[in-house]
Amino acid sequence: MYLLTNTLVTFITIYTYILIIRVLLTWFPNIDWYSQPFAAISQITDPYLNLFRSFIPPLGGIDISPILAILLLQVAGSLIGGLPGAFAYY
């Protein structure tokens, strides 16, 4: 059980870092999202971000969906990370 939760928390942490990199790269408008490695980052993060973009429209041209996406990942990581301690006594 510990290995599974540790793996999930590690995956969530790495994915959060990739999302942050994606958000930071959007500040540079001259990036070609069709060339590597930017295309790979886009393919990895867009399906998850599109879930939030479908119900959070851009406000004033600013996409705030990554904020909620990262927040949800952090909550999930905290909840999953707390599981091994809950089962340690059983």
Score class of each variant (00 low, 15 high):
Tyr17Cys: 12
Ile44Gln: 09
Asp32Ser: 14
Ala86His: 13
Ser42Glu: 09
Leu25Asn: 03
Leu73Pro: 02
Tyr34Val: 01
Asn6Ala: 14
Ile20Trp: 10
Gly77Ser: 09
Pro47Thr: 02
Ala69Ser: 13
Ile80Glu: 04
Ala39Cys: 00
Asn50Thr: 08
Asp46Pro: 00
Val9Thr: 14
Pro66Asn: 10
Pro66Ala: 10
Ile70Gly: 04
Thr7Gln: 13
Leu49Glu: 02
Arg53Val: 02
Thr16Met: 09
Thr7His: 14
Thr13Gly: 10
Ile20Thr: 15
Ile56Asn: 02
Asn6Glu: 14
Thr45Arg: 01
Tyr17Ala: 12
Tyr2Cys: 05
Ala69Tyr: 06
Phe38Thr: 04
Gly60Trp: 04
Phe52Asp: 03
Ile21Pro: 08
Tyr90Thr: 13
Phe28Asn: 06
Ile62Arg: 07
Phe87Trp: 12
Leu83Trp: 12
Thr26Pro: 00
Arg22Lys: 02
Thr13Lys: 10
Ile18Asn: 06
Ala40Cys: 09
Thr7Asn: 14
Ser65Asn: 05
Ala69Thr: 08
Asn30Ser: 15
Tyr48Gln: 02
Ala39Leu: 10
Ile44Met: 12
Ala88Pro: 02
Thr26Trp: 00
Ile62Pro: 02
Pro37Ser: 10
Phe28Pro: 00
Ser78Thr: 12
Leu24Cys: 12
Gly82His: 11
Val23Met: 08
Ala76Gln: 02
Ala69Cys: 12
Leu24Met: 12
Thr45Leu: 01
Ala40Met: 13
Leu49His: 02
Leu72Pro: 00
Gly60Asp: 06
Ala88His: 11
Ile12Lys: 07
Thr26Ala: 01
Pro57Ile: 11
Phe52Gly: 04
Asp63Glu: 11
Thr16Val: 05
Ile21Arg: 06
Tyr15Val: 00
Tyr48Phe: 15
Ile41Val: 12
Ala40Ser: 15
Phe11Gly: 11
Phe38Trp: 11
Pro37Leu: 09
Arg53Cys: 01
Ala76Pro: 00
Ser78Gly: 15
Ser42Val: 05
Tyr34Trp: 05
Phe11Val: 13
Pro47Phe: 04
Ile18Pro: 03
Ala88Val: 11
Gly61His: 08
Ala39Gln: 07
Ile12Thr: 11
Ala88Ile: 11
Ser65Met: 04
Trp33Arg: 10
